[in-house]
């Protein structure tokens, strides 16, 4: 099995391949042809063309990757030796919720973790919001996080400044479970490992990354990471959103995919887009996370009414 793992590593980070393409190939190999990735890489070009219908360009990419095998072995040995785990799409450890939410199009074929990986099967929630969230939002975040721990739910967070950080810290402080989804490769996050060491050791915090292990932080990865936060969570709680930016687009995306999204009901004098999100389908909740009736009629209901007319 470990021999196959290095091929997962190779396949998951081909620079010109989309997640969908990679996952489709993996499904073909493992489900349809029922062979290992190692066996697949041993096949001839002809078989690649005939059975898998690969293009010349794709074959070129795979051949180039094959040459890197030994090197990737060193990388993998290095990671396993340091206690990191590599969880493949077809593994029992791989969280079903991630598959359900992201599907083949976006579910990362290989995820890297450190710590208690059984947290991946917890009842998970994410608490998202602007980096520059106001005090009310942060207070709300704290409440949601603490309530979550009381319900034995696991808080998924990106650890970024603002709502993310608060959610994570409150969950940790309340001795709850948390998953920290990194905006970078797992080998580049030593300071976070050090900061949260005790919680990792105690089994309360899982560090997770879906990116190439040595990839440094970048804006692109930070953005990409948001969908993994959504993907890992069963419910999303939105503390505060502007009318643009990461939180805004994330929620819209989630609503489009019919995710269960709860939005903090703002006070009258607040200047943010929470109400707008509620009108688009987010469920309004109070300071303790309970659903409330609002004066806002969700847009979908409007449409239904007009159709009835």
């Amino acid at each position: 099995m470990q021999n196959d793992l290095v091929y997962w590593l190779l396949l998951s980070h081909l620079s010109r391949w989309t997640t969908l393409k990679t996952n489709e190939l993996i499904v073909q190999i493992i489900h349809n042809q029922k062979i290992t990735l190692a066996d697949f890489f041993d096949l001839s070009c002809d078989e690649w063309i005939e059975t898998y219908k690969l293009t010349d360009k794709e074959i070129g990419d795979l051949e180039a990757a094959k040459k890197e095998l030994a090197n990737y072995s060193f990388l993998m040995e290095n990671m396993l030796n340091q206690g990191y785990e590599l969880i493949t799409l077809n593994s029992d450890d791989y969280p079903q919720v991630l598959k359900d939410n992201l599907k083949l199009k976006f579910a990362p074929p290989l995820i890297y973790t450190k710590g208690n990986k059984s947290l991946l099967h917890d009842d998970t929630i994410a608490i998202v919001g602007s980096r520059k969230a106001h005090d009310m939002s942060l207070k709300w975040t704290k409440n949601i996080a603490i309530n979550a721990t009381k319900k034995y739910q696991c808080v998924v967070s990106g650890g970024a400044k603002g709502v993310d950080q608060t959610a994570l810290n409150e969950s940790i402080q309340a001795h709850g479970h948390s998953i920290l989804v990194l905006p970078q490769g797992i080998l580049t996050a030593s300071s976070l490992m050090k900061k949260y060491y005790k919680h990792i050791v105690d089994g309360d915090l899982l560090i997770l990354s879906a990116f190439y292990p040595k990839a440094g932080w970048s804006v692109g990865l930070a953005m990409a990471r948001n969908k993994y936060i959504y993907g890992l969570s069963k419910k999303i709680y939105v503390a505060e959103s502007a009318k643009k930016g990461g939180t805004w687009s994330g929620v819209l995306e989630g609503l489009k995919n019919q995710r269960e999204i709860y939005v903090r009901n703002p006070d009258n004098n607040e200047k943010n887009a929470n109400n707008l999100l509620i009108s688009k389908g987010g469920k309004a909740v109070d300071m303790d996370g309970f659903l409330i009736k609002t004066n806002i009629i969700p847009i979908q209901e409007n449409k239904q009414m007009s159709m009835q007319l």
Binding site: N3, L69, A70, S73
Partner: peptide
């Protein structure tokens, strides 16, 4: 550990 992950060829 390295031997265990090195490709068998």
């Amino acid at each position: 550990n390295l031997m265990q992950v090195l490709p068998s060829n």
